[in-house]
């Protein structure tokens, strides 16, 4: 009986296990084997370079820019996406009717093609767009949205915030719906205003949602690709260069599979480390709130 049960369990888990082996473990092992070689995947000559790829990556200006830019994006995207998604969740929560309809509506940007959205944004921000014509008529000039390092960073961050807010709002909305109404009623009887209720009840009890959104959004900052690829090519002057752009450029434009794999491994290690630090910080906040 027990063996039958075990077999059934393995059978049910097998599609996941198989896909994990095929699409995760084998590619991971392949990547790890590549990092010690200078190889373009087709040449019969595979040059062993030891830790040479790591030395090159750790002293590369391009990798350094990708590293710095990721935290720059994180500094804008993480707070931005939390404020926007929490705001949306609160808005939907307080709607008298049609909550599901609006929640799904806000989720739609998450499903939109990154390339299509980037092309629309490019049109909106083009020099002769109605938006820029308006800015020039009011302020006398319009920003060089995609050609100035400051504005380009901001535009890409705003696009990602817009894309993710609806999705993360669903996580916050689920958290909000789990907070008992009685707590707010009791607080109101004690004289707590809406702001105090928000600070003392809503925010602490949304800790699990904050935790999830923070970890997801931090991880996402290490995977930014489509928006800078389509809009800026990583420029101007590497201002919007990212880890994924660097991996793509090395592996698929320069055909340096070994070095590309090395950058990917570094990216994975730094992503893992960053998420670990964020988790520790958020968990210490959670412990103070009584969550374990």
């Amino acid at each position: 009986m027990s063996t039958k049960k075990e077999l059934g369990g393995w059978l049910l888990a097998s599609p996941y296990l198989l896909s994990a082996i095929l699409f995760f473990l084998i590619p991971l092992g392949w990547s790890l084997s590549l990092v010690f070689f200078d190889w373009n995947v087709i040449s019969p000559v595979r040059t062993y370079v030891g830790l040479g790829n790591f030395r090159e990556a750790l002293t590369s200006t391009r990798v350094f820019k990708a590293f710095v830019n990721t935290y720059k994006f994180m500094g804008i995207i993480v707070p931005g996406v939390i404020v926007a998604s929490l705001g949306l969740a609160l808005l939907v929560q307080h709607l008298p009717r049609g909550k599901q309809f609006y929640a799904v509506g806000f989720f739609l940007p998450y499903l939109a093609s990154g390339v299509a959205v980037s092309l629309v944004v490019r049109g909106i921000l083009s020099y002769d767009s109605a938006f820029n014509e308006f800015l020039r008529s009011v302020f006398g000039s319009s920003p060089r949205w995609l050609r100035d390092p400051f504005w380009a960073t901001l535009v890409i961050s705003a696009m990602i915030i817009w894309k993710l807010s609806g999705y993360y709002a669903l996580i916050f909305l689920a958290g909000l719906q789990g907070i008992p109404r009685e707590l707010y009623e009791a607080a109101a009887l004690d004289g707590a205003g809406p702001l105090t209720q928000f600070r003392k009840i809503t925010v602490p009890l949304l800790y699990p949602a904050f935790y999830t959104v923070l970890v997801l959004s931090v991880g996402l900052c290490f995977g930014i690709f489509t928006e800078p690829y389509v809009l800026t090519g990583g420029g101007p002057r590497f201002a919007t260069h990212t880890w994924q752009l660097e991996i793509y450029s090395q592996a698929f434009e320069r055909f340096r599979a070994g070095y590309g794999a090395t950058v990917a491994v570094l990216n994975a290690v730094i992503t893992f480390g960053s998420i670990l630090i964020i988790r520790r910080v958020v968990e210490s906040w959670g412990r103070r709130l009584g969550f374990r």
Partner: peptide, 14 residues
């Protein structure tokens, strides 16, 4: 020379 994107350029005579 304009180095910012334009919605339309040569084709529209801009």
């Amino acid at each position: 020379l304009i180095t910012e994107p334009l919605a339309t350029g040569f084709e529209e005579g801009k």
